[in-house]
Design a binder for these strands. Structure first.
Lengths: 168, 168
DNA sequence: CTAAACTTTCAAAAAATACTGAAAGATAAA
DNA sequence: TTTATCTTTCAGTATTTTTTGAAAGTTTAG
């Protein structure tokens, strides 16, 4: 396979995976493109590369900065902005984990905590089943939360090392 | 909060979380409804509870069976089918992890392996960057894969016990 | 066999989501 | 101040995803 074709395949695959996980395709593709780019790119170059509109490119680049995955660069004597992706895959993983935790997991835990407080008659099967499901899911969510918290602070090698030792 | 209101909130929250993670809202909601139901429910009851059409209910129930999250029950002397959710949250987590691994992670790893084989000039920054990103992501993906594999075989208490010991 | 009870299918409609492009808004150099 | 360059916004459009509902299919009882 040619490098050009391979880069294309990478961008496409990343886009597909993203959309399966609730991340919009363009966002995943711009990120992929920047991951493959040694140099920072301009909005113009990104539009061109992926055949997308200026509006789409602009909004998505903004989003990617919001996820902490890319950064804006300025060059002396130039007005236009350049975008560069963090290439450290462990950083990327942590960044995504941190954001999804904050945006999605934390709110759910908040609701589950509320629902845990609902009182009722343990003899009522409807209540008993509700109670058990909420309680168990809450426990799972909190275990995931604690694990993420620790992962966010960890070094990559130490992290996987410990995991594989644990599961040896 | 009332039990009825709380059940509603649970179903709604589960639906929202699902859709943020690429799982269709109806699917997450039917699953939530069944998680709260002590008894197995008929298609009719599910349609009624969630105000959805027969077609939607039927297809989504089929999907949920495909994910291994619910099962069909038959009752002596009755024609209609009843649906029951597995209430064991650890089983659910493993089931979802197993399916997503099979459906999404495995195919991506296959592509990354292919892309890893692409040869080129290490002096070419385009190639070097491509090569590094593909290599690093592939490594991460394989670590996740191995970890999932082990998780799938593990008992809940042992699993979290080991995790928290490791991170103490 | 026929009818009743139930399930499945799928084309069409609706809803949700993503994208475009042109106009308005900034900023900086002339 | 004016002009040129670049960025942002957002109403309208397009695309994708989900849902509906009616018709066709299946199974069992009589």
């Amino acid at each position: 396979m040619e490098l050009t074709e391979a880069r294309q395949k990478f961008i496409e695959t990343w886009g597909k995976l993203g959309s399966e996980w609730g991340i919009n395709r363009t966002m995943a593709q711009i990120h992929a493109l920047l991951l493959l780019s040694p140099e920072a790119l301009t909005t113009e170059e990104i539009m061109e590369s992926l055949s997308i509109s200026r509006g789409n490119a602009n909004m998505t680049l903004r989003d990617l900065m919001g996820w902490g995955l890319i950064e804006k660069q300025h060059r002396a004597g130039e007005r236009k902005e350049y975008f560069l992706a963090d290439k450290d895959v462990w950083n990327i993983a942590r960044q995504v984990a941190a954001e999804r935790r904050k945006r999605e997991l934390d709110p759910v835990i908040k609701v589950l905590d509320e629902l845990s407080k609902v009182k009722g008659d343990e003899k009522d099967p409807e209540f008993a089943t509700f109670s058990k499901s909420v309680h168990d899911i809450n426990k799972l969510a909190k275990n995931v939360d604690k694990t993420l918290e620790t992962m966010l602070k960890a070094e990559e090698n130490w992290f996987w090392g410990s995991i594989f030792k644990m599961f040896k």
